Computed example of a mutant assay.
Amino acid sequence: MSGPESVTCHEDLVKLLAEQFARADVSLRELQTRAERAGGARLPRTTCADMLAGRRFPKKAVMLAFLRGCRVPDAQLPAWERAWDRVRVGRLPPGTSGEPPVLPGRVWTVRRWRRAGLLAAMAVATVAISLGVMAQRVTPQRGTSAGVPGSFVGASHIVSDDGRSFPRGGSSRFTVRVDPASTRVRLVRRLDVGVGLQHATISVNGVPAAEWRPLLEDAVYKWRDQVVTLPPHLTAGRDSLTIVNTSVSASGFNEFFYTVENEVDGGWTVADRLDVGRGHVAGEAAHGYRVAGEDWADVQTFAYPPRRADWRVR
Rank of each mutant, 00 (worst) to 15 (best):
Q141K: 10
Q141H: 07
Q141F: 08
Q141S: 15
R142F: 06
S145M: 10
S145L: 15
A146T: 02
G147A: 14
G147D: 09
G147K: 10
P149H: 12
S151N: 13
F152S: 12
F152E: 01
V153E: 01
G154P: 12
A155Y: 07
A155S: 14
S156K: 02
S156M: 05
S156Y: 04
S156Q: 09
S156V: 02
S156I: 01
H157V: 04
H157A: 15
H157Q: 14
I158E: 02
I158W: 05
I158L: 13
V159D: 04
V159G: 05
V159C: 07
S160F: 01
D161N: 10
D162M: 07
G163I: 11
G163C: 10
G163D: 01
R164L: 12
S165E: 01
S165I: 00
P167V: 09
R168K: 15
R168H: 13
G169H: 02
G170W: 08
G170K: 08
S172A: 14
R173Y: 05
R173W: 03
R173A: 00
F174C: 06
V176G: 03
V176D: 00
R177Y: 05
V178R: 00
V178F: 01
V178G: 09
D179Y: 13
A181Q: 15
A181G: 14
A181V: 08
A181W: 11
S182G: 13
S182N: 06
S182Y: 06
S182P: 09
T183H: 08
R184Y: 06
R184P: 07
R184E: 15
V185G: 04
V185E: 00
V185K: 02
R186K: 15
L187K: 01
L187A: 03
V188W: 00
V188P: 09
V188K: 07
R189M: 15
R189K: 09
R189E: 12
